[in-house]
Design a protein around this nucleic acid. Structure first.
Length: 374
DNA sequence: CACGCGTGGTC
DNA sequence: TGACCAAGCGT
């Protein structure tokens, strides 16, 4: 150890300059092999880089992998994505979450085709102007696909940099400072590898808990490592408690197994995604009485409460859904704005996971309760 | 600029 | 099991 961790160890004062070469050397030896990454030294495809970066926003590599493979097989280039119907894009995204990303992805592909001749702009300003592309994604695509010396600052980089410099200011206020500190490290050569190396370092070594400082290529310059408090960075503003909301889902099943679904409005929570009809969600401490929930039924049918219900956690609230089931005759007409979806077509619908759970819960009850009833 | 916006894994 | 986390963006 070279220094004590006393208060004289000020923030923004690393042990020494973190050398990009040391990080790149580590990256060449230990980089992860990921399906959207070009082989070492090979040129990356902007479409694939962009697609992966959008999918990876606030989403783990593990969750993205199968979606990326399916999505790329179905939409192999920006032209095929741009010409696809919105429903096909939403269906391919269903289950991945943050559905505005899918809407913006589609809009972005159409913009690239309509306004840029099918090629992604090769400047930060051009990229930043695209729907769904913010400062991070513009820098990542710019650096990885176009060799621009841009600082791609994501959660990994915020963690790495805040530890090296022991940035005391909590996020998100510290973002501008961290961005500047990162930009000062971006090398003129291999800026794309530098961006990916920073992310690999954050994912493999400089992890949120129990960072592997002993094998870190930047352990020398890291001020938090010297102070022994790396795990306490980055500082973060306290979060608000998440409230609970309660509501009802109405799963109407036809004798042949078809289910009534509707599509949510394009904006807002689960925008543009499918769902069984449901009532308003109320913020409360407990589930409202059954008779009260039943008043929100979208149409008249022999509704029965399926025991158990569905729990789901969103970013900013917890949801508990009571599930009502009705089994109706083969000639039951779909009300306006609602459509019959055959059982075999459910998998191909744009049901977000919470609604997939609600439908499954209702079908399980219907199947066990009154098979074939009309 | 604070908030809205999904989901699954981890401890 | 609740709290936190994971390659942010739009408003």
């Amino acid at each position: 150890m070279r220094k004590s961790g006393g208060p004289e160890l000020a923030a923004l004062r690393p042990q020494s300059r973190p050398e990009p070469a040391a990080l790149l050397g580590w990256y060449d030896a230990h980089r992860r092999t990921l399906p959207w990454r070009a082989a070492s030294g090979a040129q990356a495809d902007p479409y694939r880089v962009w697609l992966s970066e959008i999918m990876l926003q606030q989403t783990t590599v593990t969750a993205v992998q199968p979606y990326y493979a399916r999505f790329l097989a179905r939409f192999p280039d920006v032209n095929s994505l741009a010409s696809a119907p919105a429903e096909a894009v939403m269906q391919a995204w269903a289950g991945l979450g943050y559905y505005s990303r899918a809407r913006n992805l589609h809009a972005c592909a159409r913009t690239v085709v309509a306004e840029h001749g099918g090629r992604f702009p090769a400047t930060l300003e051009g990229l930043l102007a695209l729907p769904g592309v913010g400062p991070y994604t513009a820098a990542a695509v710019g650096a990885i696909a176009f060799d621009l010396p841009a600082a791609a600052v994501d959660g990994n980089v915020e963690r790495v940099i805040s530890r090296i410099y022991r940035v005391e200011e909590p996020l998100p206020g510290a973002k501008p400072r961290i961005r500047a500190l990162t930009q000062a490290l971006v090398p003129a050569r291999r800026p794309g590898d530098f961006a990916q190396a920073m992310m690999d370092l954050g994912a493999m070594i400089c992890t949120p808990r129990r960072p592997a400082c002993g094998v870190c290529p930047w352990m020398g310059p890291c001020a938090a490592r010297a102070a022994g408090d790396a795990e306490s960075f980055p500082r973060k503003a306290p979060k608000k408690a998440v409230p609970s909301r309660f509501g009802a889902a109405f799963v109407c099943v036809r004798a042949d197994g078809a289910v009534l679904l509707r599509t949510r409005p394009p904006e807002g929570l689960l925008g543009g995604m499918d769902e069984p009809p449901g009532g308003a969600w109320r913020e409360s401490d407990a589930m409202p009485a059954t008779v009260e929930l039943l008043q929100e039924a979208p149409f008249d049918a022999p509704w029965r409460l399926a025991p158990g219900g569905v729990r789901h956690v969103f970013t900013h609230f917890r949801l508990e859904l009571a599930v009502f089931v009705a089994i109706v005759a083969p000639d039951f007409a779909a009300p306006a704005g609602i459509r019959w979806v055959r059982r075999a077509d459910l998998a191909g619908s744009a049901l977000p996971n919470v609604m997939r759970k609600a439908v499954a819960h209702g079908l399980a009850f219907a199947g066990g309760a009154e098979p074939g009833a009309a």
